[in-house]
Design a protein around this nucleic acid. Structure first.
Lengths: 183, 183
DNA sequence: TTCCAATCTAGACAGTGACTAGATTATGCC
DNA sequence: GGCATAATCTAGTCACTGTCTAGATTGGAA
């Protein structure tokens, strides 16, 4: 509301605006000062919530990993890996601003405890998803199969978000790729 | 040489220094002015060769796609897809500065003709590599198999470069992943 | 030699992230 | 209620950046 000294929920507002801006023009398109202007606060205000630019991206990545873990939970519990693969890619498509920073080691602080916690949740979900596969479907050790599955869905998500897969539905591709990978 | 007005080969020098800096601290760590200082030229000199920051990254990406196409050529000609997968990942490991910008739509100019030419070469190499696989190994249409193969090696390369696969040899993983994907 | 294009210098400008000191507001505690 | 204290925000400053100019220097072709 105009006239109030405090914004009310600046942290959440800035996080959402940052995600939208990243989705539009990438992490480099994000300016802390522009975010502050949009929120109607002074240029230094966001720093209190995130410390610095890296802190903002780290918070966004942590939120993203949490949302990803949530998105995978249902299909993992159901033991349906093909659907887990589709859900993974769908998450990236629906949260491009989050996904674009989640794996960018140069933009985030890997020591952040909240980031590690949420990243662990997402990683566990994917591990459990692969663990539901019948052993005879695996041509390689389970750990390598897990990493290959992760690389496959991450690759599809990344290529799609970078525009390298035009005229291709990423969810369809994820389904087909899961079948090719695990029969 | 000191004292000469012209650098001699500023373009190649800046490209190599930029690749090294990106490998060290990511694309955001690259400063045109710092590159100029290192090369011993004025801060505006690189602009003549690359136009702007985007032009520099575009030139680096084009060079990267060309090197990638070269790196894949031998194993593709031999019809050895597992080795093509390993060669792809090995290229990314050995040229992290190039690879980090090759798929970044927000950093490069997709209209650049040299970029399109080299990218086409790399894409054709990967397509030919998958085409050598016996049809009975494919559980899905060839186009989807090709995209899945690309996503798999790209995913391994990306995750490795972002530090998400510690204690894992990316070449070993590429070999195992190729076996899991195509039997 | 002369001319021209390629290359580089030097200066300026607006925008940025980060830091600081201090003002304002919210909150828990008496 | 009143008050101390932490949380939040403002405003100013700084060095640095990319980009844009106008002009100087150099190499090569005619």
């Amino acid at each position: 509301m105009a006239g109030t000294y405090h914004h009310g929920d600046l942290r959440a507002h800035v996080l959402a605006a940052a995600a939208a801006e990243i989705a539009r023009s990438g992490p480099d398109g994000v300016s802390l000062r522009a975010l502050a202007r949009d929120a109607g606060v002074s240029h230094g205000a966001p720093a209190h919530h995130f410390g610095d630019r890296r802190g903002l991206f780290t918070a966004l990545a942590a939120e993203g990993f949490g949302l990803l873990a949530d998105a995978l939970a249902t299909s993992v519990a159901a033991g349906d890996f093909a659907r887990t693969a589709v859900d993974y890619v769908t998450f990236a498509v629906e949260h491009p601003g989050h996904y674009a920073v989640m794996f960018r080691a140069d933009l985030i602080d890997p020591e952040d405890s909240e980031l590690q916690r949420q990243e662990g949740r997402a990683r566990d979900a994917l591990r459990d998803g692969v663990a539901t596969l019948p052993p005879e479907r695996l041509a390689v050790p389970a750990e390598q199969a897990r990493q290959a599955a992760w690389a496959l869905v991450h690759g599809i998500a990344s290529l799609h978000l970078d525009g390298a897969l035009p005229r291709t539905d990423p969810a369809d591709l994820a389904r087909a790729a899961a079948r090719q990978l695990f029969g």
